[in-house]
């Protein structure tokens, strides 16, 4: 009798202990979550290298970005855009233009051989590690993800525009269709599937490179060591992770 009771308690105890994993397993089987792709956030930390000397201002990145991310085609909305700098020798301020953000390329505007320095600078969200835009969001709708991308929670955004004003690089806009904020999310839907971003995929000269700073085999580590690197507005200490090689001092 007493042994029966002992058996019963033991068996019941075992069943009780097994219930939780069994339920979790059953749920995983039923919802198909067990086959979740093996993307581990803790193993990645994303950034980008922009090689200014390689940019030819073709606008492929701007067009690819708009296609990939459904950015409105009107020339006021960009997740990435390209600027043309024209710095006359000894000039205090550069002339900067960006016709349609570089969407249709850059029609020749300056006479060749006018003695000025001229070059293209691609711009995008700098995926700051200490981002001013995420700090001002009153509802936690924008944030730095554990793998280093600054993302927007579109279902939670109020459209208050604080972050649009807070971004020192002008990387955010209000999507006219949803009235919520939008910005470069480093093609988060692509990089978590093992693809590179749409802009890097379509850049013909390799001026833009997606980099994984946590991957010891990523050539970024050699690149950062071998080149003189600058980020935009370093004095703001935003922790920007878009590293520019060959950036001129006139670029703001």
């Amino acid at each position: 009798m007493s042994s029966d009771r002992r058996d019963f308690v033991l068996t019941a105890g075992k069943l009780l202990v097994l219930t939780a994993p069994a339920a979790a397993y059953l749920e995983a089987v039923e919802t198909g979550k067990a086959e979740e792709p093996a993307y581990k956030m803790a193993e990645h930390y994303w950034g980008m290298i922009v090689d200014v000397d390689k940019c030819i201002g073709c606008g492929n990145c701007v067009r690819a970005c708009k296609t990939e991310n459904d950015v409105p085609v009107e020339p006021y909305f960009f997740r990435t855009w390209v600027e043309r700098y024209h710095v006359a020798e000894g000039a205090e301020h550069p002339d900067v233009d960006s016709p349609d953000g570089g969407y249709s390329g850059f029609p020749e505007k300056y006479a060749a051989g006018d003695g000025a320095k001229s070059f293209f600078v691609p711009k995008l969200c700098n995926q700051c590690a200490h981002s001013p835009c995420t700090q001002v969001c009153p509802v936690g709708a924008t944030f730095e993800s554990p793998d280093g991308a600054v993302l927007v929670d579109k279902s939670y955004c109020l459209g208050c525009r604080y972050c649009v004003q807070a971004c020192p690089y002008g990387c955010r806009f209000i999507d006219p269709r949803t009235k919520t904020v939008d910005k470069c999310n480093l093609c988060y839907h692509r990089i978590t599937k093992g693809l590179t971003t749409a802009c890097c995929e379509s850049c013909p000269t390799g001026a833009r490179q997606l980099v994984d700073l946590k991957d010891p085999k990523d050539p970024v580590h050699d690149f950062l060591r071998d080149h003189k690197i600058q980020v935009l507005k370093p004095q703001l200490a935003t922790g920007a992770k878009v590293y520019y090689n060959g950036l001129d001092g006139s670029v703001r």
């Binding site: 990939e68 839907h189 599937k193």
Partner: peptide, 8 residues
């Protein structure tokens, strides 16, 4: 942020 299907 991950659900969108890639176009490229």
């Amino acid at each position: 942020n991950r659900v969108r299907a890639p176009r490229f």
